[in-house]
Structure formats: structure tokens, C-alpha cells
Simulated scan of single mutants.
Amino acid sequence: MPRKRSSTKSRIVKAAWNLFYKKGYDGTTVEDIIALSKTSKGTFYHYFKGKEALLNSISDLFDSKYEELRSEIDPNLSAYNTLLYLNRELFHMIETSIDVNLIAFLYSSQLITKDHRSLLDENRLYFMWLREIISKAVESGEFSPDSSTDELLKLYAMYERSMIYDWALCKGTYSLSQYSSRLLPHMLDTFIHGI
């Protein structure tokens, strides 16, 4: 049952963000979201108070992408290559399916919200899976034991948030995934050799 609830909410979130990208936030109605997600009005309002509540669901969208990637990724990849792959795929999804203005709004709202800051929620799949990957790499010696798993996880998450922030600040004038694919290897090299 929890799996079905998760996939229903995920369908609503994916449909909403797809419509926000194609029609803009103001051009998207709750009815549009309900139709595209193939849910009912009652189901929609069970998960969200309204369209505005979906703006805080960006982390759900990211976790949905991670869930897809988890089932596709080669389990024999090194942690280094796994992190490169996850970053490339997540950033490609962001730049090709999320309006840059909404990203900018969401990042700024996380700074002033009195509610839960979803981008920092360590119970998300994003953090749990990254912790698992990094922890195994530290234990196996792929990443230097000079830094703890927590420290490396924090650095990686900070890197991704800062890249997304800069991309939004620059109004998406460059390819997020391409630029990151040039920079991330340098940071991951420090994970290997020690910070």
C-alpha cells in the first residue's frame, strides 16, 4: 500500500512539473494536473492543498528521478562513476524539464521558509542512496578515509545545490549537465585523494 501511495503522489508531481515546464506555472491548472496524472480531484487534494503546494515538491521530483535511475544503473560501477552518472542524469532532467524561473523561486523560498526545508531532508531517497554509495566507497578504500561519509555527502550535496543555484542565477544560459561533467570529476578526485 505505501508503494501505491508513493507512486500516485509521484505521478501527480511529475505531471505538474511537466505542465509547469510546457505551459508555465500560471498557465497550468489543477484540472490539467489531474488529467495528465490520471487521478481524481479527491486524490489530488489528498496529497496537495493546491497548485502552490506543488512548488515545494521539487525534492519529490528529484527523488523520483533517483528511483528510476536506481533500477537502471549498473551495480558494478565504481562509486566515482556512479556519482558522475547520477549527477549527469539528474542535471539533464532539470535543464530539459524544469523551468529555470521555478528553480530560482524554489531555491529562494527554501531560504526563507518557516516550514520543512525539503532540499535538506536527509530522509529523502537522494540522501539515503548517496550515503550508501559514499559509505561503501570509504569502506572499500575507493574514497580516502581522511573524511567521513557525512562530510563527503555534505560536500557532494552542496556541490549539486550550488551548481543548480548558479544555473538558475544565470537564467539557464549554459548547459547544467555539460558544465557539471567538466567540474565534478575534480571534486570527486579530492574524495579519492583526500580533502
Rank of each mutant, 00 (worst) to 15 (best):
R3I: 10
S7A: 11
T8R: 10
T8N: 10
K9R: 15
R11F: 01
R11Q: 12
A16I: 02
N18H: 13
N18V: 02
L19R: 03
L19P: 04
L19E: 03
F20R: 03
Y21D: 05
K23A: 13
G24E: 02
T29N: 06
V30D: 01
V30E: 04
E31C: 04
E31Q: 08
D32K: 02
D32C: 08
I33H: 00
I34F: 01
L36W: 00
L36M: 11
K41L: 07
G42V: 01
T43R: 05
T43M: 05
F44Y: 03
Y47V: 05
Y47F: 14
Y47S: 06
G50M: 02
A53G: 15
A53L: 00
L54W: 04
L55D: 01
N56Q: 12
D63P: 07
D63Q: 06
D63K: 05
D63N: 10
S64G: 14
S64D: 13
S64L: 10
K65H: 12
E72H: 07
E72D: 12
D74E: 05
D74P: 07
N81E: 10
N81I: 02
N81Y: 10
L83P: 06
Y85P: 01
L86S: 02
N87P: 03
R88T: 09
E89A: 07
E89G: 05
T96R: 11
S97T: 06
L102E: 05
I103W: 01
I103M: 03
Q110M: 03
L111H: 08
I112H: 08
I112D: 08
D115N: 05
S118H: 04
S118L: 04
L119I: 11
L119E: 00
L119N: 04
L120P: 06
L120A: 09
D121S: 05
D121T: 02
E122A: 06
L125I: 05
Y126M: 02
F127Y: 09
M128P: 00
M128D: 00
W129R: 00
E132F: 03
I134H: 09
I134Y: 07
A137Q: 06
S140P: 12
S140I: 11
E142D: 12
S144K: 12
D146S: 15
T149C: 15
D150Y: 12
E151F: 15
L152P: 04
L153P: 06
L153M: 11
A157C: 11
M158C: 13
Y159C: 09
E160I: 11
R161V: 12
I164L: 12
A168E: 08
C170D: 15
C170Y: 14
K171T: 15
T173N: 15
Y174L: 14
L176C: 13
L183Y: 13
L183N: 12
L183A: 14
H186L: 13
M187A: 11
T190W: 08
T190L: 15
G194E: 10
